[in-house]
Every structure is written in C-alpha cells, then in structure tokens.
Design a protein around this nucleic acid. Structure first.
Length: 854
RNA sequence: GGGUGAUUAGCUCAGCUGGCUAGAGCAUCUCAUUUACACUGAGAGGGUCGGGGGUUCGAAUCCCUCAUCACCCACCA
C-alpha cells in the first residue's frame, strides 16, 4: 500500500482504534510488574472539550509507555453520575419544559435522570475513543453500578460503627434555590460591596446602650445575645446585664467571649447562633438558644412578627433597616467590602442554616493521611502540592455528606418514627419504610455527597475487597487529575483509601494545571470560550491535539490552549509520515531483514548513537512523568537528527537495513505520544508481520562505535559552516578542501550535503580560508575579494571568541574553582578552552587574509 | 490574614538534583521551486532570565527582600 503525500488523520484514526480494541490490546497482559491507572471518571452526561483532553492524554501516554516496556498495565475507564452537577443540568431541561423538581417525587426524578443520563452517556465514550485513549473498556465502571453502591454502603456502615459518622444538627451551607446543603469546600466565596449597619441596643435597665455593627440586620430577629471581648474595658461592666432588642423587644444577655475582635465595628457583636457559623460556636460555648428566622426557602420564617413573615432575606433587610431608622436605632451605615458565600452553580447566596445531617468526623482520617504524606508514601507532581495538602488536612472540619437531591446513592439509614434519635443502618433503600420488631422506621430521603463514593474510586473500581484485580493493582500506580480537585477529591481518596484498605490509594499523584482558553481565561460554557474537542481533531488530527496539548506544560500550572502548538504537532506528524513515505520508496519490496542490521557508515554509527541517547532519555523522562520534556526531545530527534541529517545522508550512503531498524525503534518510542500516525505507518510498512505497534517491546540497542559517530559530527560541522559561508557570499561556486586522512570516506557526502561544487583532498598551505568551527582541518578556496563580504561576520566571531576565552581563562585561573568544582567539570572547561583557542587562531589567520587584500 | 504559583525572545511557554556561549513552538528576515515532506529545505536576527541583596569557585536555577499578576484557603459581626 502506498502512502498518500500528506497524512490525513481522519482516513485512518477510526479504523486504527477499532483494530486495537478488537485485538484486546488494552487489557493487562504478560507477567511484567503491574502498572495501574484509574481514570478520573468524567460526568456521564458530559461532552468533553479540548481542555479535557489533557488529563486523558497524559494518562494514556503513561499507560502506553508502561505497556511497551512490558508492564502488566491496567487502565480503568469510568463515568461519574456527578450527583448535584447532573441534577442541575436536568433541572435546567425541566425548566425549559415549564416544570421543576417540585413536580415529581424523588423516585420519579431519579428514574428520569437515569434515563436522561443513559441517552447522553455514549458521548464521552466516543470522545475518548477519538482521543485514542487505550483504556480497558471491559473494566468500565459507573459510579451507580451495584458494586460501587455496595462498597459505599459497607464503608458507611463501618464508619458508623467506628463512630466516625454521626448525625447531628449543625449549621450547614444551604442553597435555597437548589434546596440542598453543601460541604464547606463547595461554597464559592466572592468579595462583595455591602454595608455595615451600626444599631443601638438599649440596656434593659435603662442605664445606657450598646451599639453593635452588623452586615445582616435582618438576622437580629434571631439574636440571642450580644458579645464583647472579656478584656474590653469599655464594655466589661455591661457583661451579665441584658439588652432589649429593638423590633422584637426580647431581652438577651450581654456575654463576653474572646472571639470578638475589639477593633472591628464597635467591638460589640450581636449573636445569632442559627444563622452564622461563628455565632453558632459562641452559642454552644455559652449555651445560648438558637432562634431560626430564615427558612429553607430563603424566606423569613413563621415565628416572626406578621410584618416579616415570608419576606425574602433581601426585603426583610430593607424593611427592618427602615423600621430601625424610623425608631432612631440606626447610628450610621458604612460601606464594607466583605466576602460572601455563593452556590457554585447558581450563584445564590449560601445561607448558613441549622439542619440534621450526616457528618464524617474527619480528624482521625486526616491525621492518618497526614502521617502517610509526611512519610512520603505518595509522590506528588508538582512536589509542593504535598505540603499544601497537609496544610489543608490539618485544618479540615467535619464533612457533611448529606445532600437533599434525588440523583445519587440513597443514604442507607432509617429513622424510628416514634423516636427521632433512633437511627438504624439498612440497605433496603428501595423501601420508604421498614418495620422491625414492631417499630416503624422511615428512610432518610437524602443521598450521599458524590465525593463520598468517588473518594473510594481507586479500590471500588478494582472489585474491592476480594478480587484478583484489587490484589494486583492496588495501590494504583498513578493518579493523574486536575490540580483544581486536589482537596475535593485527592484528599478524600487518601483519607478513605487508608481507612478502608489500610493503604494509600496510589503511589504517585500527577496534577495537571488547567487548560485555559486561547484568550487566557478559564474555559467554560458560561464564558462561551470553549473549544470543542471535535473541531480540533477534525482540523488537525488527534495526534496533533495530543502533542500540542501536552507540549511545554509543567504540572500544576495553568496555561492557555495554544493553537500554534497543535499546528506544530500536526506538522510533526506529517514529517513522520513523509519519512515513512521516503523509506517506503527506498526500501520498496526488498524485504530486508533489518533485525540484524549492522552499522556501516559514520552516519549509521551517529544515528544509532542518537537513537540510544533518545531512547534512554525518553524512558527516564516518562518514568518520572516528565511528559513535555520527553516529547520535546523526540520531536528534535525525529526532525533534526533523523530527517535532516540521517535521511539526507542516506540519499548518498545507502544502508536501508539500519534506516529501517532506526525508524522502527523511533515509531515505538513515539507511539505513546502519537499513537495513530505511528500505528498507521506500522500497519503500512510492516504489514507482513501482522503485528500491532501498540504491543511491541521497547527497543533494545544496536551496538555502534562512538568514535565513528563523532566523525559524523565533524562532517556536520564542516557542512554547516560551509553552508553558512556560502549563504553569506550568496554563491555555491566555491571549492572545499578537506584533509584526506580524516574524511576520505566522506568526501562525496560532504560535497552533497554542503552543496558546494567540488570537494578536493588537496591541502592548501598558504592560501584558502580555514573553517573555524571544527578542530578537523577544512578549507574553502575562495577568491579573497569575494570573501570581503564575510569580513564583518568574521570580526564579530573573533570578538565573541575572545570573550569566550577570557571567560574560560578567568574560571580556570581561579584556584577556588579548580580545587572545588568537580573534576569532570574542570576537565571539560580545560578542553573547551583549548578548542576555543584553536578556533580563535583560525579566525585570526583568516582575518589576516583581508589585510593582504587591502 | 495565611499559602501557592508566575514574571525568561514579538507572542505562548520549557529549562528536572546549581556547571558548555540560556532553549522550543509560532511569528520575523534572507535564500531555495520539477525535492519523502511548502504541513518543506538551508540559513539569520532576536533575551543584561521582573528589581535589589545574599549564599557559592559558579545562580535563570538556592536563600532573603521588593514589585506586579494569577490562584487557593481561612476570617470578615
């Protein structure tokens, strides 16, 4: 089969992926050491954009590399039901139909969303195939699969029994629009312009007043105290007295608590335990009652004076301020910038509200995680994220795992209808009520926070607790995910992994930065700057996207989607393609047994030397997860070494066997990065083997002679400098002289590559222009007058060469350097100085010719 | 308030444990047209590595400090 002139990815990619999938190449094979990656499951109803590709491509490169070096490699794909996220998407769809979640029971909603997800689910699977992701589809896992739920339940039960899970009334973060609570980390804080209201609270005994400052005057309806700092001389005399609250006329005590900041506001704080986390803590310390004045709909509650009932928080604030002003209780109002928590989906202000929920006591889990992190049981890329994670874990508060939504794993807990404190664990969640020993229990209507189950992903996906996969592939070798979910997900996987299995869930965490849009902003639907995956693939091909998206990116750092890098990737694939075409034409039907190739020419030795270097280097980079560095070196090996020099040389010094051998090895080491084009070429050039590139073994080395390889470097230098001079002189009509003893075998090669008219072995003793960049002797026989144009260049070369020598001499004249620096470095410096001096001599001699001319 | 990262060529960014005259892609300039490849080839130009200080024989790299930008966490009556 003949290859077309330009690589057209869309002609091959689909078939190539099908070929891999059909062959079973994605399943773990062989007896190598296990290497496992569990894919962070994409949302089941999601469509991936170009930015998403980064995570899967990085994982796939690691996976393909480990497969090639013979590891028993498992890459588990999955999908996330993404509880709240998905329900929000579905609710938006309902809204379009003029309906809302209130029109359905939770069971109805659940089954509707299930159908909704089923119809959308195939999207990302096809996208992953398009990206060439070599995951083992047989191992596919959805976060609502029965085994997942089973393990999540048994973990919940175990934690309950161990006293790590408790149910209690706490202030939780509540979105009144979506009607559910959130974990602390899910709240999005924004800096906002607000107002600080100074309000008079008269002492009940008429002996004066306290002025409190608040941003939320409406919550004063629920005040149960006023607090001052215990050391505050202004107020300490009031402690123990009471104030009479304006509007409600309730009497509340004045207490002292050191949490009060004397500098802020007036130094006197109204305490509303039911609506402020700090006040809640104060309330606990001082046994204050909690009065709820805002309900779960975000409106003022029924226990308030008629005028305020059912008002929105916003309206209530306006109304109460108006009333206070009228009655003379407002001292002043100051503008104040402060941060306010919002729902990360709808932007509604998060209300801290009292609610009974299930909580995980994170302290013991976090401590164990910290201990393991400090013992470096997990390697982080970038390394500094480990310390950040430890800091986070040290300050971790208890985790609210109850969600008031329909789409999720029902919490397996039932409450005695006659005794609210009597909760039992039971997994018969399909029943709304249970009757046990004559007592009736009602199911908790809530579901788990998605992260409670996905936090167990590294072992849940492997069939924990009693499967061979689990024994073989846990802990996972690599967890590659976004730096944005370090706390949200990685932290919880470590905590839960240690708790359930006793081991850290993975050996390495690689956190990629975010792919911002081309405009430098975050890529998001709402900003309208999303780059669709399909567009990029269609325009440039998958391999180009894979190469462009990983190029020049360091872990943990965000950087923009760079079309120029995708273009570079596309061009690179085309270059490779054309190397293959060249080889195809050259080798034709010779059926060379290239497996026993032996180097003949200096170019052969040189390319084998470079192949050895690049193979080792790519291995080292990939073993240490330095993806962009590996790609960068491969790019230059293929383009600069293989195409520009070796292939060019092969046009004059034929050695097809070595050429084929080198190209075969190149395809293998390049395969993890650009799987489609490499496999396509493999299937075309090596079809008679009936093998798949994806299943090849990492190349082993051919022997070569380092000295002969170095000879070729000399040839390169002569050719390069000759080209440069010829270019400056704008002529190729020059005669090149080289020392026969050094280059007799390469004369023709030098002539062809440097494109001069003739090359002679005649030695010019007193004429000719000596090349300066090589130690080996080579001259150009050029008319001195013609050379005049070259004077400037030579002069600037001379000056910079003198500077180089001065620098080297200064270094070597410093005894501190020669004594302290490693011997190897010093030796290198001496050699550099020597050759620098030689080059300067040549430049000087060449320069002198000009004085002769003038 | 605490923390992290960034600042290197016109643009986007690499530079791992300090050690050749600091690199890449794209862009720019010159030359090349029946070539495996114009998605090309041969060349060139372009940076006092944000400022200042320190450690070191040696600093883009380590430390301190300042500035600017970005992000994260906590608090914000």
């Amino acid at each position: 089969m003949k290859l077309s002139k330009i690589y057209e990815p869309e002609r091959y990619e689909e078939d190539i992926y099908a070929l891999w999938e059909k062959s079973g190449a994605f399943a773990p094979k062989g007896k190598g050491q296990p290497f496992s990656v569990i894919m962070p499951p994409p949302n089941a109803n999601a469509s991936l954009h170009a930015g998403h590709s980064l995570t899967y491509v990085l994982q796939d490169i690691a996976v393909r590399y480990h497969r090639l070096i013979g590891d028993r490699t498992l890459y588990v794909p999955g999908a996330d039901h993404a509880g709240f996220e998905t329900q929000v998407v579905y609710e938006k769809q309902l809204a379009k139909e003029g309906k809302s979640r209130f029109d359905f029971s939770r069971e109805e909603l659940y089954s509707q969303i299930w159908d909704f997800v089923q119809t959308n689910k195939s999207g990302f699977e096809q996208q992953l195939r398009k990206l060439g992701i070599s995951c083992d589809w047989e191992h596919f896992c959805f976060t609502l699969d029965a085994p997942v739920i089973k393990t999540a339940y048994s973990t919940f039960k175990q934690m309950w029994q161990d006293g790590l899970i408790y149910r209690g009334e706490r202030l939780i973060n509540y979105c009144t629009f979506h009607g559910t609570g959130f974990a602390d980390i899910e709240v999005e804080y924004k800096e906002e312009q607000g107002a600080l209201y100074y309000i008079r609270y008269p002492l009940t005994d008429g002996s004066g007043e306290l002025v409190v400052a608040t941003t939320r005057p409406e919550t004063m309806l629920g005040d149960t105290a006023v607090a001052v700092h215990p050391d505050d001389k202004r107020y300490i005399k009031f402690v123990g007295k009471t104030v009479t609250l304006p509007v409600t006329n309730r009497q509340v005590p004045i207490i002292s608590d050191s949490f009060v900041d004397r500098e802020f506001g007036t130094g006197a704080v109204k305490i509303t335990p039911a609506h402020d986390p700090n006040d809640y803590e104060v309330g606990l310390r001082h046994s204050l009652p909690s009065i709820t004045v805002i309900n779960f709909e975000g409106r003022m509650s029924d226990n308030l004076p008629e005028a305020y009932r059912e008002l929105s928080v916003h309206d209530a604030r306006l109304k109460i301020v108006k009333q206070l002003e009228k009655e003379g209780f407002i001292v002043k109002v100051e503008p104040l910038k402060h941060s306010v928590g919002h729902c990360y989906k709808c932007g509604t202000i998060i209300e801290p509200l009292l609610k009974d929920q299930w909580f995980v006591d994170m302290k013991p889990l976090a401590e164990r995680a910290i201990a393991n992190l400090e013992k470096d049981k997990i390697t982080f890329f970038p390394a500094n994220k480990k310390d950040q994670l430890i800091l986070y874990l040290k300050n971790l508060k208890d985790w609210n795992i109850s969600r008031q939504i329909a789409w999720g794993i029902p919490i397996p807990a039932f409450q005695n209808i006659d005794n609210p404190d009597d909760w039992i664990y039971d997994t018969q969640v399909q029943n709304e009520t249970l009757t046990i020993d004559g007592k009736t229990y009602r199911r908790d209507p809530d579901v788990f926070d998605t992260w409670f189950s996905s936090g167990q992903w590294p072992f849940i996906t492997l069939g924990y607790p009693d499967s061979s996969d689990f024994y073989e592939f846990y802990p996972n070798s690599l967890m590659e995910t976004g730096v944005d979910i370090l706390y949200q997900w990685v932290a919880r996987m470590i905590c839960l992994g240690l708790y359930v299995t006793g081991k850290v869930p993975f050996e390495t965490v690689y956190l990629h930065g975010m792919v911002r849009s081309a405009d430098g902003r975050k890529m998001s639907k709402s900003l309208g700057n999303v780059i669709p995956l399909e567009d990029t693939i269609k325009e440039f091909g998958t391999d180009a996207l894979r190469l462009g998206i990983i190029a020049g990116r360091s872990p943990g750092d965000s950087s923009a989607y760079a079309p120029a890098k995708i273009v570079a990737g596309r061009n690179f694939c085309n270059k490779l393609w054309n190397i293959a075409r060249y080889i195809e034409n050259k080798v034709d039907d010779k059926r060379l047994d290239h497996t026993t190739a032996k180097p003949n020419t200096i170019a052969d030795h040189w390319i084998l030397s470079n192949l050895q270097r690049i193979t080792t280097s790519v291995s080292e980079h990939l073993a240490n997860y330095r993806f962009p560095e590996a790609y960068d070196e491969l790019y230059h090996f293929v383009w600069d070494d293989l195409a520009d020099w070796y292939i060019e040389a092969s046009k004059y010094q034929t050695d097809d066997a070595v050429l084929l051998q080198v190209f075969e090895a190149t395809l293998i080491i390049l395969h993890p990065f650009a799987p489609f084009v490499t496999e396509t070429i493999w299937q075309t050039l090596f079809i008679d083997k009936e093998t798949l590139l994806i299943e090849q073994a990492w190349p082993s080395m051919l022997s070569y002679d380092e000295k002969l390889a170095a000879e070729f470097d000399q040839v390169k230098s002569i050719v390069t400098e000759t080209r440069f001079i010829a270019g400056s002189l704008k002529t190729s009509d020059i005669k090149l002289h080289v020392l026969a003893e050094d280059f007799s075998a390469s004369i023709e090669l030098i002539a062809k590559l440097s494109k001069v008219k003739t090359v002679s072995e005649e030695v010019l003793t007193d004429s000719g222009f000596k090349l300066t960049q090589t130690v080996k002797a080579a001259w150009l026989d050029i008319d001195d007058n013609a050379l005049k144009d070259y004077r400037k260049t030579l002069e600037s070369k001379r000056i910079s060469q003198i500077a180089v020598i001065a620098g080297l001499e200064k270094r070597l004249n410093n005894p501190e350097y020669t004594e302290r620096a490693p011997r190897k470095i010093v030796k290198e410096t001496r050699q550099q100085l020597e050759s620098a001096k030689e080059i300067l001599e040549t430049i000087k001699k060449d320069s002198q010719k000009f004085s002769a001319v003038e």
